[in-house]
Design a protein around this nucleic acid. Structure first.
Lengths: 269, 269
DNA sequence: AGCGCTCTCTCACTGAGTGAGAGATGCCGT
DNA sequence: ACGGCATCTCTCACTCAGTGAGAGAGCGCT
């Protein structure tokens, strides 16, 4: 439809305005970020909206990513995360050896405790749950595999705060402590006191911080350098009998720590 | 080496020869592919070599990927896969709901059988192992999490071949069947016969196909549409008592199938 | 010091990636 | 049947993000 004919004086001027000088990679990442636990399948236009991309650009990028298997397309054109993506991430992930070391103990712990047992690592200012074994009749558990929780509200987070670098605590206290439930620790003093308790007892127990009816208990797993590399935690009902699980958890954590130190070299994470 | 000249007079000619008109994304993927289970940490120059990239390009791309957390850099400048990468892949992965459905049963199976128990899906012409629970004193097991095995040598593969689309079998038979051990099925007739057995019995049992001393047994897990969505398999010693594990496996597979069909909608994978 | 190797930065250059728009397809409600 | 309204893909002129050579800084070894 060449009206105006080529129109170089035209108002259909500069085309490749190129967003804002953004890299392809950041756009691709935004595409992946558009997905979530609740949204595992999305349409092109929906991705474009969520990732703030032009539809044409989204379509092109998605087609490209799909051609490499990082995304997959359903029969109804819906887009999903591809297994290739997971494979690339998992095949050589530094957390894989942690997982391998921890899994046998986590299984035993899960079998004995009967509630959700999980393995968490610190990433940025959040706890990232790398593995979770959940009971079919579990109390509500907000954490999920590849899920995140802020350090100040989760028992695992308290362990990382207690034994981690002081900078982490400083960063966390630099922002207001967001409230999740009535039990959330929101004052710096109370948080510091809680962390002192963790250091004294060697574990963290938080009742009703993530969810009213659940108690989280976390114990540290250390690497060969003595740093806290991960946490083992359980989520149990809020019935005052939580402390009974501590001995098994401590034993499990010691087992994983030992297995982790036995690994040839690998300065874990 | 500008012999022949060609070059417009100069030898510091055209600079941005841009590899071969390759997209950034494919380069980035090659960077991730440079890693492997044996190589979880690499140097920039080594990545450049493996991914066939200019060192400057590799350095730039790695820095960029690291800034998004898809890669991580150690103190000694070594590069590793970042947790963010795994998080993006796992958070909304279609295999996550499969894993959730299967895990309780896989745990029970593992506890009872006492050897490696694994969950496999079909990707392309390989079996990709999504989850593995291994015993500490396990017989050798080549499969690992995010590991692949060709369909014709693994018991899981035979299950997929037996119940999957005929095109898959055609594709596999279109290429020569690579030999792994003395027991490997290399003739199309024998493979077809083995698959007929699988269809008749409802399971696949292969002794010594992946490793001389191990027997693999796999049973199908079906989705709501009746398709084989995954396999549950175990690797046990090659001592003739393998068949004893079949009932538990069948029960586990039925349990997972039921759990999978109970999932709201989700046309799995 | 000298050599070899790795990593990052600079810089001129260009092609891969861009967004508007149009066309194809499909899905309503009337 | 038909217009209206989606979504998705393709084309195309345009340009900026990405490119590779090269140099320089840093490190380890002889």
């Amino acid at each position: 439809m060449p009206y105006g004919g080529g129109c170089r004086g035209c108002h259909t001027r500069a085309v490749a305005r190129s967003g804002a000088g953004e890299s392809v990679i950041s756009r691709a990442i935004r595409i992946f970020e558009a997905f979530g636990p609740d949204r595992t399948a999305l349409q092109v236009s929906e991705i474009a909206r969520r990732a703030d991309l032009h539809v044409a650009t989204a379509s092109r990028l998605i087609a490209q990513l799909a051609s490499y298997g990082l995304l997959e397309r359903g029969v109804d054109r819906e887009v999903r995360i591809g297994v290739r993506m997971w494979e690339l991430a998992a095949r050589a992930s530094p957390t894989l050896s942690l997982r391998d070391a921890a899994m046998p103990y986590l299984e035993d712990l899960h079998a004995v405790v009967g509630h959700s047992a999980q393995l968490g690592v610190l990433d940025g200012d959040d706890v990232l749950f790398v593995e979770r074994l959940s009971a079919r009749d579990a109390v509500v558990n907000y954490s999920r595999i590849a899920g995140r929780l802020p350090v100040h509200i989760s028992s695992s987070g308290h362990v990382f705060l207690a034994y981690g670098p002081p900078e982490l605590l400083d960063r966390v206290l630099g922002r207001p402590l967001e409230r999740y439930t009535a039990a959330t620790v929101t004052s710096p003093e109370r948080l510091r006191a809680a962390l002192a308790d963790v250091r004294r007892c060697g574990y963290a127990m938080l009742a009703g911080h993530v969810h009213e009816d659940a108690t989280g208990i976390a114990v540290p797993v250390r690497n060969g350098l003595g740093e806290v590399a991960a946490t083992i935690s359980v989520v149990v009902p809020n019935d005052g009998r939580a402390a009974a699980h501590l001995p098994v958890m401590m034993a499990a954590a010691r087992g994983v720590t030992r297995a982790l130190c036995a690994v040839p070299v690998a300065p874990q994470r």
